[in-house]
């Protein structure tokens, strides 16, 4: 698992990174030439995100990392194994692959962090009785449990592969491995899709940005993939 829990040093490093980013944007990548407009635009976009108290993600496609931030404070960092654009094409032909314009802010429209939830509900409610809970509280509260530790409701483990719809018409895939590229796998996929279409299933694929990462990292990112979460995607060297 390639994750970093931000210690003091890392926090300072993150602060330095922001300063360096801005400095780079200002000075044009360390040279005295013109400032890089992409870098300036990225910092401006982040300044927009930092105005709100919400957590946002910064996907750095060059360094291949995802930073979890709030108010420009780097809270955590996840490493990416790969970033690819995924489009759907007929098996026997090829079209030009669309590429996103970066830097950009994408917003999750329908996130798995909202939908993959377990619901519990008692079948019926009985009238409240204080005797149901415990003995009458003693005069001096005793800070130890009187009974055995309750068994907590099991919390389902988040998946390692999931997708989110974005407001720009794209999808965001979080995967533990990028889509297979070998000929037999692609052919089998085309046949399966053809079979679905033959049976009248309306299949409408959106282009996607696939982020490949370790399974554990995918799990820990899952709950942040909620509707409304903003993602700043940058490609500044």
């Amino acid at each position: 698992m390639r994750t970093w829990n931000l210690s003091t040093a890392a926090h300072r490093l993150a602060a330095a990174f922001i300063s360096i980013s801005v400095a780079t944007a200002t000075r044009g990548g360390g040279t005295e030439s013109a400032p890089q407009p992409q870098a300036v635009a990225a910092v401006e976009l982040e300044a927009q995100l930092a105005k709100t108290p919400a957590v946002y993600l910064v996907v750095d496609t060059v360094r291949r990392v995802i930073d979890i931030r709030a108010r420009a404070l780097n809270l955590d960092r996840l490493a990416l194994k790969g970033i690819e654009v995924v489009v759907y094409q007929p098996f026997f032909s090829s079209r030009q692959v669309p590429m996103p314009e970066l830097p950009a802010i994408w917003t999750i429209e329908n996130g798995p962090g909202d939908t993959d939830r377990e619901t519990i509900a008692p079948k019926e409610l009985r009238p409240y009785s204080s005797g149901d809970e415990e003995e009458e509280a003693p005069a001096t509260p005793v800070p130890t449990p009187v009974g055995p530790t309750p068994t907590p409701t099991p919390v389902p483990e988040p998946p390692v592969r999931y997708r989110a719809h974005l407001d720009n018409g794209w999808d965001l895939w979080v995967v533990d491995a990028l889509p297979a590229r070998d000929w037999p796998s692609r052919f089998a996929e085309a046949v399966r899709d053809g079979w679905r279409r033959l049976h009248g299933e309306e299949v409408r694929f959106r282009p996607a940005l696939a982020l490949a990462m370790e399974g554990e990292d995918a799990r820990r990112l899952h709950h942040l993939m909620r509707t409304g979460t903003k993602i700043l995607v940058v490609a500044t060297p």
């Binding site: 496609t61 690819e84 995924v86 950009a104 053809g194 940005l209």
Partner: peptide, 29 residues
Amino acid sequence: VLARFGEVAVAVPLRPLPATDGGDPVALE
């Protein structure tokens, strides 16, 4: 025939397009 009508995921490396065209260096700073 099924493969002919089906579509398949094609993954290609990200080659982003620049979202801005640049501008006056002083204004950028």
